[in-house]
Write a protein that binds this DNA or RNA. Sequence first.
DNA 1: TCTGCCGGGTA
DNA 2: TACCCGGCAGA
Length: 437
Amino acid sequence: MGANSLMMGGGPLSPPVTSASTLSPVSNTGLSASALNAAALYSQHRGPLMDLTTSLQHKLFHFSLNAAASTSPSSLSSHSSSSASSAYFSSSSPTSSTKSWSHLDELMLNTAIRGTVDPKSKSSTKSPSGQSISVNSQQSQQAQSHSSQPDPSVVTHSVSHLLNLNDSPSRTNGQSTSDSGIVVLNKSNVIKFGVRQEPNVPVLNGHHNSQPLDLQTYPKSLSSNIGINGNNSNNGLPEIKPILAKVSSNSSLSGTILPVPLSTTTISQAKATVTNSVAGPIGPGSLTNGVPTVPRRRGRPPGSTNKKKKLQQQLQQQQQQLICAMSLIPGANGGPLNAAALSGHPFITSGGLLTPSAGDHFNQFAAAAFAAVSAQSAAAAAAAGGLKSPGPNSNSSNGGRKPRGESRKCRKVYGMDNREMWCTQCKWKKACSRFMD
DNA sequence: TCTGCCGGGTA
DNA sequence: TACCCGGCAGA
Ligand SMILES: [Zn+2]
């Protein structure tokens, strides 16, 4: 029931496309204008498409392209001056919670989409063409290892294998009313895809009798024309192609994912109808010459560090302690030190550091204070610098950091493989909101 | 080595 | 505010 309402309930497409009235997908998709138009054009001839990126949010599986993982952090950010198109790609540290697309497999797809795990579908999925997912993984690793520029065709190939797309659009029956679609598209640097939520619709047909998506991978020039990720060939970003497909609910082909023929004319037509009135994450400002660009990913850029700031804080703290200690010097018993006394003191340098020099009137009191402060600041620096604090019970409430709770949190409960099941806070590396202590 | 999460950057 | 990640403390 949900599927049908999703399919039928969609309003007209937001961009003023001529075929908008014939299209029934949800419009608030965040898909690129050209993609929407391509979908519109397709649905005009072939029947309605449904954007599952929106309708199946909770079932969506998402992953980041990790193709640039092996590059240095500086090369991760777009080096093009067009900051609008800059994007980051997650590094794949061992503890990284981001799933590399090369690790995507059928099991995860089924888990993500159907919420169930089919134990026998784990790993080593073979396609009839003799290629397997592991081959794609190898390809991806190759792409990762020797180049900061991932090979977009590898991405597309792999996705097509994973989705097991059928390459025969002619098998589509004309009954558009019983067909719904699946849209696989890029949104920022994340590919999202899914199928409509309907029981008993196998996402991946069990026979793996499909072909790879080669016929969907139009050449680079075309993908540039359609405006996916812009046509800036040297912007350091991988090209992510739109993949449009539909799920047939025909009895004999139930669950088979049929590709949408993105013909050259369709693409060019789609390009011609690109407008600036696209709503969604790809905002109006990110369209340049009708070419949507990839917005920069939110969040802390990978590779950024807190060390600089921390060092600064450390220094400041040190100085403060110094001043406090120096307040012992002029007064008899640690009376407050006024500015005049401090500024006139021979041991306070412009940098705020105390530099006792031989021959000066460096009294014992000051020496003692200096030693004390030095020891203190050294300890503080050691603590802040990542050295293990010395004793087991070094401090009961160190730094105001609350002690770790004893309950298992989402990460432990669901595991890294099911990150989509974690609570939001855990996803963000914040204090878990689901398993409170 | 893994887990939990704080601090802070970015949109 | 939402999202994301470096890095630290502790198990
Ligand atoms: Zn949680």
